[in-house]
Design a protein around this nucleic acid. Structure first.
Lengths: 153, 153
DNA sequence: GAAGTGCGTAACATTAATTGTTACGCTAAG
DNA sequence: CTTAGCGTAACAATTAATGTTACGCACTTC
């Protein structure tokens, strides 16, 4: 499949919006995301419904953050984009009445539910302000940052 | 996307093979999975390369388990099917040099790595023999089993 | 109040991954 | 040497995410 990158993109954009401070049009945001204004409206529309951003039409309009970054977690953004499960188990549906198939599926679903709990806990702990601070350290002149630098494992 | 159900299918099949005890042809297995012998060969081929099953050509040939179910974990099967990550973060690649994008991606990758660690731990703890026992309880006459019955959360 | 700017959304095209299908080669048993 | 069965390449079908075009509606400004 083609990977779903909406969460990453929205986090990216929301931080930029906070840094810029004002109102951004779908076209401006589309350039940040190297895409199309329609895609931006689609995705930002979901954030609007959950009160993360607001939009204004007409001249001078655009999108604006409704909360400061330190009151926004990755979980908030994820939940705005999708209420359902983040991880899904990839079960089989070849013989839905077969006890073996059902037991296999149930086992996998259980394992993924555990993993999802971990993921959501991580998401809830990740404030966008923290990510923004991390970005400041990764500027020309600083040593290269890997993606694995700061776990709290 | 279409979900990858190879893991669920292989667990399903391996348990059936153990219960049947002998050698099964790709065609027999295909019927269990409600699919095609070629699909079976493709997927079982991966298990063969990792020593989980063996295959024999010619008359009387087919596939056979090389290990008892209590010495096979879901993790073994997953690893046979795919050496890489089970969970992937869905990062954005719109402006690879943008520090904000990189920080956002890194944060997500970190969170998914945590979740993957949980998932692999669950997989490692799940023996196929345990799943097989669970299937025995889910037979006509028994009360209906939900998919959420037996976590150790 | 007319025009321009910008969001909202439907409809369709594109891209990618999984799965299904057909065809053919090779091996081992009988 | 015929049959049963695996091994694999090649192609079609299905599905999900993303990209794109087109058009409607609201608000601002002149």
């Amino acid at each position: 499949m083609k990977q779903d990158s909406r969460l990453a993109r929205m986090i990216h954009v929301l931080i930029h919006m906070a840094l810029l401070g004002g109102r951004e049009t779908s076209e401006t945001i589309a350039k940040m995301l190297n895409t199309n204004p329609v895609v931006v409206r689609r995705t930002m529309g979901a954030l609007k419904r959950k009160g993360v951003v607001g939009s204004e039409g007409g001249r001078g309009g655009g999108w604006a953050l409704l909360r400061p970054l330190d009151q926004l977690t990755v979980l908030d953004v994820q939940r705005a984009l999708d209420d359902g499960q983040v991880l899904t188990a990839g079960v089989s549906e070849d013989h839905p009445t077969c006890p073996v198939e059902r037991a296999a599926n149930a086992a996998l679903v259980g394992a993924f539910e555990q993993a999802e709990r971990t993921l959501l806990r991580e998401f809830a702990d990740l404030r966008l302000s923290t990510i923004a601070e991390g970005a400041m350290k990764d500027l020309p002149g600083s040593p290269i940052q890997t993606a694995h630098g700061d776990h709290h494992a």
